[in-house]
Design a protein around this nucleic acid. Structure first.
Length: 301
RNA sequence: CGCGGGGUAGAGCAGUCUGGUAGCUCGUCGGGCUCAUAACCCGGAGGUCAUGUGGUUCAAAUCCCUUCCCCGCAA
């Protein structure tokens, strides 16, 4: 099939590669480069980088809902448009454009976790099962009919691990869905809107983990925010991001450091405690919790 | 030139303000104690203090300047 692929972040890279192996990707649409990162350097989006390395033409319109842009897309005469975390809402004129319309890879088991941050939210809520959905795109946010879903256990994953797994599973699923569509065997199923939940964007304020919360909830929150944007605590006045931690049954006065040794830094929460394993102190890179203790002995005596 | 922190032994840090023999904890190597140990005791190795044949000085990790790299914030 002739495919137009639309996507932006890392999540969208693997599906693009896989699709390009089996189909003719005639254009990759991605967000414009923006000055970002330290020193406001202009950085290409991950999808742009990938597309260029594959020799696929890249298109980065500022505004997607624009007559000239839409005409340009139409000129490629694609059979299908595949969208994976593009980052902007598409107008109906694009959704209806190709013969096989637009399909989307969404990182949740719809109708749960429609919206911006399905991966993080699923882990933060302590879900046991997660997965990916391939659907026909509709006007509403992630409301399209479901072509197929793939689910798996996520009860011990971090958001980062879940993200990577979703990217793989999503790649296989989208190829399968494309086969179904091309052979006319796809039978999309309507979503049950009553079961829909919304996965709101993560705010910075949410990343602060306070000691008066339940230990299990804190554990889920930390996993759900790792490795980005990354949960943090304030210990001895310093912000410390938590990359990896474990749950422990030991109890104590919330906020108290129960022990700090080679296993990590154990801090009491409500109804249990959290053992910090790998952390990222402010102004410094990632290190083991024990290494941090060695360099800040006075604080842990 | 968006704001800020940092580069000192394999790891994490102190020392820099107030220049004057390079320190701490861990690891590592050797030895000891022990039924035994990740515990304890003794000893050792390991640094051109990121960079510059830079500036100031009798003397620079420390003060001034150059370049490179890393990180946090913000987007």
């Amino acid at each position: 099939m002739r495919v137009i692929y639309m996507g932006t972040p890392d999540f969208s890279v693997l599906p693009l590669r896989r699709i390009a192996e089996r189909h003719e990707v005639v254009l990759a649409v991605t967000q414009p480069d923006k000055p970002k990162g330290r020193g406001y350097k202009m950085l290409p989006t991950p999808v742009k980088e990938c597309a260029q390395s594959l020799g696929i033409e890249v298109y980065q319109p500022e505004k997607i809902n624009d007559e000239a842009v839409i005409e340009y897309l139409r000129s490629f005469e694609a059979d299908i448009i595949v969208v994976a975390a593009y980052g902007k809402k598409l107008p109906v004129s694009i959704l209806e454009m190709p013969k096989y319309k637009c399909i989307n890879i969404h990182a949740s088991l719809l109708p749960r976790y429609r919206g911006a941050a399905p991966i993080n939210r699923a882990i933060m809520n302590g879900d046991k099962t997660g997965g990916v959905t391939i659907m026909n795109m509709a006007e509403g946010m992630d409301t399209g009919d479901i072509i197929l879903q793939r689910s798996f256990d996520i009860s011990t994953m971090t958001a980062g691990e879940y993200h990577d797994r979703l990217s793989e599973v999503g790649s296989d699923a989208v190829l399968e869905a494309m086969e179904l569509i091309e052979s006319g065997r796809a039978c999309p199923v309507k979503q049950n809107d009553d079961e829909a939940t919304h996965a709101a964007k993560i705010t910075k304020e949410e990343c602060l983990v306070e000691f008066d919360m339940n230990a299990t909830a804190a554990y889920n929150k930390i996993r759900g925010l790792s490795p980005v944007p990354c949960a943090y605590i304030v210990l001895n006045g310093k912000r410390i991001k938590i990359v990896e931690c474990e749950l422990s049954c030991d109890e104590g006065e919330p906020g108290k450091v129960l022990c700090a040794d080679k296993n990590g830094i154990k801090i009491a929460f409500v109804g249990g405690s959290i053992v910090l394993k790998r952390i990222r102190p402010e102004g410094s890179g990632e290190m083991t919790a024990w290494a941090y203790v060695l360099g800040h002995e006075a604080e842990f005596r």
